[in-house]
Amino acid sequence: MVTSQDLRDAVRRLMKQGKLKTLYAYRKGAGGGHAVPAFIRDAEGVEDLTWDPTCVHNLSRYLIDEKRKREKAKTPPTHPMALVVKGCDSRAINVLIQEKFVKREDLYLIGISCEHSGMADPGKVARKFAGQEISDIKFTGEDTFIVVADGKEKVVPASDLLADRCLECPANFPVVFDLLLGDKTKRNTAARYKDVEKIESLNPDQKWAFWTKALEACIRCYACRSICPMCYCDECVVDSISQGIGPDTPAEEKAQRVRWIERSPDLSETLVYHMIRTIHLAGRCIDCGECQRACPVDIPLRLLNKKMEKDAREIFQYETGFTSDQPSLVSSFRDEDPEDFIR
């Protein structure tokens, strides 16, 4: 079992060896004992680092910030971009390397295996322990969690609290790393596309009813986009403010600029936003589930991305993120690609 102390010792050692200077990791947040992303420089703050079942965030998201910082820096970097990655997060790293967003040699990855469990879903914890104050959740080294509720420790089967994505996880230990903490444990996981298949089995009007109900709540905060490591475009489709606009652009041209998605949270706009984001993520999304966790109005976003993932695997035999040495899904093709839908 990997403890927080194991992680802190490893980080101190790596920093002493000069292998790291900065690091994205996790520390305990102010309330509820839930982990939050942390950034430490040199060894300051190492004692606050944590590794526990609340470390849900995909820290590879911060490579976007790091890369932008380095692009603007006046001197070349002297140290790698370092972060802690879980299995899912490491697959995101592979995609970013494959797309040449980052270079492998510019990264230092401290991989941590989830071993026999994974991440606890905050919603499931709140429901199971309704009314109680959760101050900590701990790994046990087995397929259980210890939840500290109202000051008392309770052992719970991990399957009761594991995030849905963890229940279906195809990579519960990192697939790319410089240092691995924990064992490469194979875990029994559920069939990956049960929920997608349920929707696929509905007729068009039923599908439509499901999706309109789910997406009507969307307030277009774009948190799903903002938290996704793969949404690294300097200018997103929804931001189209500067396409072709400069100080000398005439007014008529500005007025006629393309706006694919209007600002209004009308269903028609919201649908295009979610569909285009899902399509842009086809073959790139590794189902870290952060988009769904971040969504303030509980839109089942994973169900959109999993559909593309299912198509990629079943129709194109394409698996995302287990290697960085493959082309992207949409900029490659095989002779056997189906064309029965083409007249």
């Binding site: 939050v36 992303p37 942390a38 950034f39 998201r61 307030i219 905060c221 774009y222 948190a223 903002s226 938290i227 600002r263 971040a294 303030p296």
Partner: peptide, 20 residues
């Protein structure tokens, strides 16, 4: 450092009022 500029804080805030 951790901010992902998602805007949830301002959209849910009862006193925030910026508009486009």
């Amino acid at each position: 450092i951790g901010c992902i500029r998602c805007g949830i804080c301002t959209y849910l805030c009862p006193t925030c009022h910026c508009f486009d």
